[in-house]
Design a protein around this nucleic acid. Sequence first.
DNA 1: ATGAAAGCGCTAACAG
DNA 2: CTGTTAGCGCTTTCAT
Lengths: 338, 338
Amino acid sequence: MVTRERPTLEAVARRAGVSRATVSRVVNGSTTVAATIRDAVHRAVEELGYVPNQAARSLVTQRTESIALILPETASRVFSDDLFFPAVIRGVSIELEAANKQLVLMMAGSAASHDRVERYAMAGHVDGVMFASMHGADPLPGALARLGIPVVCSGRPMTPAELPVPYVDVDHFGGVAAAVRHLVALGRRRIATIAGPQDMVAGIDRLAGYRTTLRQAGLAEHVTVGDFTRESGIQAMRRLLSEQPELDAVFVASDMMAHGALQALKESGRHIPGDVAVIGFDDVEISRLSDPPLSTVRQPIVDMGRTMARQVLGLVAEEPDVPTSVVLPTELVVRATA
Amino acid sequence: MVTRERPTLEAVARRAGVSRATVSRVVNGSTTVAATIRDAVHRAVEELGYVPNQAARSLVTQRTESIALILPETASRVFSDDLFFPAVIRGVSIELEAANKQLVLMMAGSAASHDRVERYAMAGHVDGVMFASMHGADPLPGALARLGIPVVCSGRPMTPAELPVPYVDVDHFGGVAAAVRHLVALGRRRIATIAGPQDMVAGIDRLAGYRTTLRQAGLAEHVTVGDFTRESGIQAMRRLLSEQPELDAVFVASDMMAHGALQALKESGRHIPGDVAVIGFDDVEISRLSDPPLSTVRQPIVDMGRTMARQVLGLVAEEPDVPTSVVLPTELVVRATA
DNA sequence: ATGAAAGCGCTAACAG
DNA sequence: CTGTTAGCGCTTTCAT
């Protein structure tokens, strides 16, 4: 592969018979250039097939025109049949596209990749960074923010708020409360839950919502924990079933897990929702395709992505009044399982 | 957001009491540096929180250590419930991760984003480029190759082979032939097809496979065309049903379309596979989850991604014997629909 | 083994 | 309106 010499500004300038500065002005669309010269430059650019070298440009402008979305997960997890990530990415893409910024997607599921991503962001490869699906108290967002890089998280960060990072999240608590109250109103009394991973805010907040609401209703809680995957939902449901065979409802902290739970319930011969009512959380496609269609708590995932993107873009552009954090509403969607 | 000054090599050098050159050597792991000096430099780096500026580095090394995957589709399409793209991305990620390169994912579904992506790649933002899901005779791969940028396509490019771009593809023809022969062996005689988009090699080749095999069997063909989405599968199946109500089998060029076709068939009261046998293509998750589980032609999508990634990495590293193009096998998977 | 110096290709004052 | 000039932060000969 012969790395053919790329023409430089210098070459274009010579060809057009002007200075480098003038070529730079034309290329960057300055209006203060005479039409004839501008045309000459354009012609030279065309003839030479000139494309500006981004490294050189970034070196002086301190801008890269691209924004990173960091997902601290393995690629296999991000691109499984769980449509949570895709929805976030879609939302982000829509906004970045409109702003004409390049999205740089980075998976950081391993320690090695986490380091690489860190260096990448710190090296000034991108103008801003978004995080989604954070686990535990990841120090990276704070570290980047301290470096002066605009950072926004999807999901309230669990870091001690020494340096608060703006975030966008949804009303986990409210959504879960609505779901559990719905089950109670249905007359269910032995309501278990399959909680999400307790190193993630979404997992923690949804479990808190379940506990609080159940306590208010004067009912006993029954908790088991999964990791948001379908497989963990199957396992968790089996566990629940063996520990408390007479349960009559289960709130599952994600639709993927709920899908697994449905399967485990059917295997055990339970009728849904006759014997056991089920409500999930997310409202991703699978919940409509499942059999029967899953009742769930809808969260506006695409909007989370969009909002997050708008926030970083605002920070990058140093707009004065970018909202630091926003919490989007959730909504109970009743289908066939509860 | 105060863009705190980032320490430079210069700063580190001053602090460690050495020259910039020495710091550079240490940072880049040169072995020809005295241990005491090396330690002093490392300490200074640590204390200042120094991170090399990638733009400056790229400017001189002409390397960015990142590789792009370009998908000429909208983000909504890439991140729908069609798991084709995710599988490719997964494969690519695995290899890039192992090679410690950064993956830059770029969607180019609109003319504007296509342009942006082109400039991005041409500007030397990445060391190599992969394409997946190409439509028509996109000039971009050839253009980049001509610039000396290593390029690999997933799917045989439709460009006139003036400058042949290496590619990885699967044996569409063989897979379809197996599927159609299977239908014939089952005794089906009125075998229709829902073909893929005819601006894509996968669409064209699969249709060719259907036509040839049917002709060999002495049967009449019946073709309608979709665009690989579920919705188009529904529409196409309805069309087929109204044009030839007595059809007894249909080969569908993608599982997503087959899933839609299944739905349309059920709506029309057809029994599957009793009245109509169905075979799809891809073997993505949905084909196992559909009701009944779909017979399909399996293509090794993740392997395509991996292979493609290995090819670019080889080209970037200027390894002498990188295979220019490879065709992976496909395999008929018989489940419940045929 | 280390330092000095010369750029990589571009933008942005500043003059003119 | 255009050209001159001075770097941006780094790597890399070439001396020492």
